[in-house]
Design a protein around this nucleic acid. Structure first.
Length: 650
DNA sequence: AGCACGCCGACT
DNA sequence: GTCGGCGTGCTC
């Protein structure tokens, strides 16, 4: 038995989202600095973690630290972890896991590779007037706060990011640029490497090899000279030492929301990270998110706009047409493609240019919509569309649980309501019938086949297809020089989801799809087919007026008591039988309803009630105090899930 | 997540 | 009487 003195430490352990506790006490023979990355035995496995503080010998037997790294989580990163744990409660260990990932476990020697010296190759273009004005605003008084950069598609936001990053690098601080998806890495990476040279750029994401990830981790941790890290939301969790600027590109994108395990908003987390470092935060988008923009502005942040195309050509224009699908004279031989759209495709074919048809498939079969007058079923309590449940032939509100018998005829015009759900295949079929000689390319939202997508993309870009048909996949980043016509089918379905953010999502989606045309190559036309042409949302899409939309949308949220004016928590539970799930959710809802500071809606069946054979019911809780909601979340039974600040009520 | 403990139905 | 179902609780 050794008589050596033992040291005891509280260790924050990296665990998965099912754990409620994350601090455990271990002993070591040597004195270990706070923040040190360690590997500890945990049950029968081993986990990574880091030293929180020294502790006294506990009453129970402790296990020894297995390995102590020379690496440590810097202090401001530890504070950021603490912030994540308190702001997104539930499973603290899962936050720790993000910061002390598994690849730190095996590799015993943590050595930073010598950077490969590559020189910047791109000759820097002169900034446009718009870019210069934005640059001056963002480096002036705004540099001390958070900013929203509203720049229309093609206004050259990336060019501006480069200039802003350059300035911070020159000050000796680091830069983090977040983008929504891994598939967009290489484009941004190429641009940045061309601008700064390869050794200034560090790329981090989950599809890189463990050793590449470790290099990015070490670079963030170790910088002797400033670098720019680019990555998706997981790049928030690298051990940065001295950030001067955090940029969130395409900030409206839903991918910034972590929607499994411990749920968090990458945008809100980025805000906390930049506060921790005293860094500037910039959220850039052509359609900045409503709630987050309101937050930034309410806290004294600035809104900076770029309204002009960077590559301006004197002939490029973009025009919009809203086609009222209720009017018979707009109908053609195909009920999916209106007469005006068909004419436009025909003209575009004649010009040897391309057409793109976008179809929104999400949620189409669930809503009752009259194709004659545009009427739809709506919940009187929540002002949200009701969903049609085929098995019970009922209309239900996914939020408050209101249930009534479904109907066959429209209550205002007596027309029969159709429940058909046209897919991308029927669109393609109709097109082949109408334009037998056109070359048609179809894109399904099949993210697994990335390679075939980029192959197909190059082919189409160079003119390999006349008509392109697809879903959500087509909203992002496509640059098609030959594109002249964009057709949006089923514009209503995005609008009719039972969610207070559905107008915002629809606005974003339509604006992003419209942005594929009129990018400075050629003039273009956007045709939107809808049964509800009077929705305020369409006016702002066609007038390309994000700010107007933002203002009206905020007003609506304020009047109907939704975020950002109230905090929301979604709670749900999944069980094998419908009876048990109703019983359990009723019990919790009753407990929550007894708290009169909370507004409780439901329980109601989740939008997707059956999840792989099980039943899911949900409860929506709202409060003016976020802290109150966080407190309630910790009292839920172990088999309940929750999402504090959910991106949607679905 | 695994893996133990623990208390009720079908079996030799 | 015993084998084994999976509900509940624990991991320093």
């Amino acid at each position: 038995m050794s008589k050596e003195k033992l040291y005891y430490y509280e260790v924050a352990v990296a665990l998965s989202a099912t754990w409620k506790q994350h601090i455990y006490i271990y002993h070591a023979q040597e004195k270990t600095p706070t923040g040190s990355v360690v590997v500890v035995p945990f049950g029968k496995t081993e986990k990574t973690g880091y030293i929180l503080s020294e502790s006294v010998k506990p009453t129970y037997l402790t296990k020894p630290l297995m390995r102590i790294s020379t690496l440590a989580i810097p202090q401001n990163t530890r504070k950021f972890i603490d912030w994540m744990i308190s702001y997104y409660p539930g499973s603290p260990g899962s936050h720790v896991q993000h910061f002390v990932p598994g690849f730190l476990k095996n590799l015993s020697v943590h050595k930073l590779k010598k950077p490969v010296k590559t020189v910047a190759t791109k000759k820097h273009t002169v900034l446009t007037d718009d870019q210069t004005a934005a640059y001056e605003l963002l480096t002036g008084r705004s540099a001390i706060t958070s900013s929203v950069l509203h720049g229309i598609t093609g206004s050259g936001k990336t060019r501006l990011y480069c200039e802003l990053a350059q300035k911070i690098i020159a000050e000796g601080k680091n830069v983090l640029i977040l983008y929504p998806e891994i598939s967009l890495t290489s484009q941004l990476e190429q641009t940045l490497i061309a601008f700064f040279g390869g050794d200034t750029i560090s790329v981090y994401h989950s599809r890189r090899t463990p050793s590449e990830q470790k290099q990015a981790w070490l670079k963030a941790h170790n910088t002797t000279r400033p670098i720019i890290t680019i990555g998706p939301r997981s790049a928030l969790f690298l051990p940065y030492k001295n950030l001067g600027l955090v940029i969130i590109d395409e900030a409206h994108d839903g991918a910034y929301k972590q929607d499994s395990g411990t749920r968090y908003s990458g945008l809100i987390a980025a805000g906390a990270l930049s506060r921790q470092h005293g860094a500037q935060l910039i959220m850039g988008s052509a359609t900045p998110p409503v709630s987050e923009t309101q937050h930034v502005l309410a806290k004294g942040g600035s809104l900076v706009c770029m309204h002009k195309l960077a590559v301006s050509s004197n002939t490029t224009t973009k025009s919009f047409e809203i086609v009222d699908m209720r009017k018979p004279n707009n109908h053609s031989s195909s009920y999916l493609i209106s007469k005006p759209l068909m004419e436009d495709i025909r003209n575009t074919l004649k010009n040897n240019k391309q057409s793109l048809l976008f179809i929104n498939k999400r949620g189409t079969a669930r809503m009752l919509l009259c194709e004659n007058c545009g009427w739809h079923a709506e919940c009187p309590n929540c002002e949200l569309p009701l969903t049609h449940h085929h098995d019970s032939f009922s209309l239900q509100c996914t939020v408050c649980g209101l249930t009534e018998k479904s109907i066959i005829a429209c209550p205002t015009c007596r027309q029969q309501l159709s429940m058909k759900n046209p897919g991308i295949k029927s669109v393609e079929q109709d097109l082949r019938g109408i334009f037998p000689d056109a070359r048609i390319a179809r894109f399904d939202s099949d993210n697994k086949k990335r390679d075939t997508f980029s192959e197909k993309y190059e082919f189409i870009k160079s003119g390999g297809a006349d008509i392109i048909v697809g879903t959500q996949l087509l909203t992002k980043g496509l640059d098609l020089p030959l594109l002249e016509t964009v057709g949006i089918l089923q514009a209503d379905s995005a609008l009719l989801l039972p969610d207070y953010t559905s107008e915002e999502r629809a606005f974003q989606q339509l604006t992003q799809v419209s942005g594929r045309v009129g990018r400075g190559h050629t003039s273009g036309k956007v045709i939107v087919q809808t049964y509800q042409p009077d929705s305020y949302m369409f006016n702002y899409v066609t007038s390309q007026d994000w700010h107007g939309f933002y203002t009206q949308e905020l007003e609506k949220r304020k009047n109907s008591h939704y975020p950002p004016y109230l905090h929301v928590m979604k709670i749900w539970v999944v069980k094998k039988s419908r009876e048990s799930v109703i019983k359990a959710s009723n019990k919790i809802a009753a407990e929550l309803k007894s708290m009169h500071s909370l507004r409780v809606l439901g329980p109601a069946p989740s939008y997707y009630e059956k999840v792989s054979g099980n039943y899911s019911w949900q409860i929506i809780v709202m409060s003016s105090s976020r802290q109150d909601l966080a407190m309630q979340s910790s009292k839920l039974p172990a088999d309940f899930y929750f999402d504090l600040d959910p991106a949607s009520l679905l």
